[in-house]
Amino acid sequence: MTAFLRCYPLIVAQTVREVLLSRRTLLFVALALAYPVVAIVAAQRLGDSRRVDELFCGVTFGVYFQGLVPIVSMFFAVSTVREEIASRTLVYLITGPVPRAAIWLGKFTAAVLVCWLILGSALAIAICVLPMIGEPGWRGDASITRATLLAPILPALLAPVAYCAIGTVFGVRFQRAMITGAVYVVGWEYVVGSTPAQAGVRSLTVVDSARAMFFHGVDPEAAREFRRTMLLWASGGRRNISIDLIPSIPEAVWNLAILAGVALALALWFGLRRDYDSASTDD
């Protein structure tokens, strides 16, 4: 335990430093900045006092939770683990007095921190700038409600944790982990996450819990259309629309905790048992 406590923060700090100095991180920062830009431009051009909440919800759901969060989280989780293995620098860690749990959990934590930094910055820009649009002197008729504006914060904090945990398993277990991660995001999160709630499998996706938290957080009046659309989507377009089809915030948090917990347990299971050869090649 002492070795774990000594090594874990060192590995987290080192990994965060390596990731932040990477040029690819700049690419993802630029990609993440697309979200506040789209949200602000949409509110500026199309918004008015009735529609600005709806626009913000649509952009946040479509661009942020469906696009940015899974892609950025999966990329950083897989790459932090896989690059250590592919570059063979892992050899110095596994042949040193470093518990493997500290390596994999350190990589996971570093990925989460980087995702929070990038995704959080993008969200923070949107949250800070959007209320200004409603100010006199800019566009006085497009004010956004406080509840809607703050609704993405909780899912934006928790969803990357679950995605990074899943990405860590892929990184530890699969040689072509980036492809596996892409297949997971498109084939599982998007497809299974879009099945009618009655099928019961949506709760196995991260995106379902993230949008449930967002759904319950937004202002029910100002974002009425968005909520109606979400309910309709959850019911698969059927008539028996019920709010029960969307998990409550505690249920969503619990779902994400289970997904992340299982994923991390699997990552440790594979990572503690596998031999990593210094001569191994990688994708």
Binding site: R6, L10, E18, S87, T89, L93, T95, G96, S278, A279
Partner: peptide, 30 residues
């Protein structure tokens, strides 16, 4: 493992680090 010092045949490092920073990092891990 703390009593083993491996100098492997492969030639990989954290290239952005200095030797001093890297060796210090390894020493702290140990």
């Amino acid at each position: 493992r703390n009593r083993i010092g491996l100098c492997p045949d492969m030639d990989r490092f954290y290239e952005r680090m200095s030797a001093h920073a890297w060796v210090t990092f390894m020493a702290r891990l140990a």
